[in-house]
């Protein structure tokens, strides 16, 4: 210290008005980032600035957004689910396998697969108190092994999905609004309602903030956690079925690429991986931003390696930007 004699004059730090406003409304900042990225992409590829461009963005974002909904709910509790993409793949596989019995049966079977795996994750984390990272990572590995084996045996039948699922995943209502986006919209309404307006939503935030306080308040915390992982499984299954519908046929790599983006979308949208802070609205914007970014990198026509690096760097910059914007408020 000895040599240091700086005089403190007035306010050391005076935030600009706009910056303060943005810090209090960080979602606006995300909207601005989204619009800017959208326009840049349009500048690179003029065709992108069209109804078609918007539709493709939404079509890409829908499964990601649903997977990220699962991630958001769990991250709010201080957890995470690294098995969402394997659950999605498994659900799509089972749905394809059941497709000869009709789309209704196929979808139901797929969703039940998600519910079952989510329940196992939930029991592991909530009852046996396995660390969520370990539990879901291990589950992901086990599922990959199981499905690899089962594609030769019990799931050896159809890998084509029923026409209705195809319509759901890839078709569009009145030729312009993709059905998968409508499904996403429904999921979003339910998730946002649950998080904001239900007692369950309160508990999701609360256990992420301080589990002991919730326990002392007379809540059985394990029930909340278990239900969150069950919901995560169901959401992952829905995303998987939509993805299966989009491609028309399923394989074990169906959803693999979505794992890290599903976490990134939630983080970019302002949900803390430590729990208690965030929400699904931000995640929706995160998913949209990542989808546009994907298109932009595709249009730029640079090599795969460059694409990956730029993608990673931008995700890092966005997450950092959000955190440093809101920290001061």
């Amino acid at each position: 210290m000895s040599g240091e004699t700086r005089i403190v004059t007035g306010r050391a730090y005076r935030a600009g008005k706009a910056q303060t406003w943005l810090a209090q409304n960080p979602l606006i900042a995300l909207v601005i980032v989204f619009i800017a990225l959208f326009l840049v992409t349009g500048a690179v590829q003029p065709n992108f600035l069209s109804v078609n461009g918007v539709r493709n963005t939404l079509l890409q974002a829908a499964p990601l957004g649903i997977l990220a909904a699962a991630q958001t709910v769990l991250m709010l509790t201080g957890g995470i689910d690294l098995s969402v993409t394997m659950i999605a793949t498994g659900a799509a596989y089972v749905a394809a396998n059941q497709s000869p019995n009709g789309a209704g049966v196929a979808i139901l079977a797929g969703v039940l697969v998600g519910l079952l795996i989510g329940s196992i994750n939930g029991v592991g984390v909530a009852v046996f108190r396995v660390n969520p990272l370990i539990m879901t990572l291990a589950m992901s590995g086990i599922l990959l092994g199981l499905f690899t084996a089962w594609t030769q045996t019990v799931l050896a039948g159809s890998t084509q999905v029923a026409p209705f699922i195809k319509l759901l995943g890839g078709g569009a209502w009145m030729g312009s609004v993709p059905y998968s986006v409508l499904v996403w919209g429904g999921v979003a309404l339910v998730v946002i309602w649950l998080l904001r307006r239900s007692g369950w939503g309160r508990l999701i935030y609360a256990i992420g903030d301080n589990e002991i306080a919730v326990r002392l308040a007379g809540v059985r915390v394990w029930q909340v956690r278990l239900s969150a992982y069950m919901l995560s499984g169901v959401l992952a299954a829905i995303a998987g079925i939509l993805l299966g519908g989009r491609t028309g046929a399923v394989d074990l790599q169906l959803a693999g690429a979505f794992l890290l983006p599903s976490v990134a979308a939630a983080v970019i949208g302002g949900t803390s991986i430590f729990g208690g802070v965030g929400g699904y609205t931000g995640t929706i914007l995160g998913a949209l931003i990542l989808s546009v970014l994907n298109s932009l990198l595709t249009f730029l026509n640079v090599g795969q390696a460059i694409q990956q690096m730029v993608y990673g760097a931008i995700v890092l910059a966005l997450a950092w930007g959000y955190a440093s914007l809101t920290r001061r408020s």
């Binding site: 307006r197 239900s198 007692g199 369950w200 309160r202 508990l203 935030y205 609360a206 903030d209 301080n210 002991i212 306080a213 919730v214 002392l216 308040a217 007379g218 809540v219 059985r220 029930q223 208690g276 802070v277």
Partner: peptide
């Protein structure tokens, strides 16, 4: 500190015990 939700509002902190029973998980 063990009985507080540091990042939640006063209202949400105060209301936490209302959601203990499974039947109260739905509507606030």
């Amino acid at each position: 500190l063990i009985a507080l939700l540091p990042n939640q509002s006063v209202q949400h902190n105060l209301a936490t015990p209302l959601f203990g029973k499974l039947t109260s998980w739905w509507r606030i």
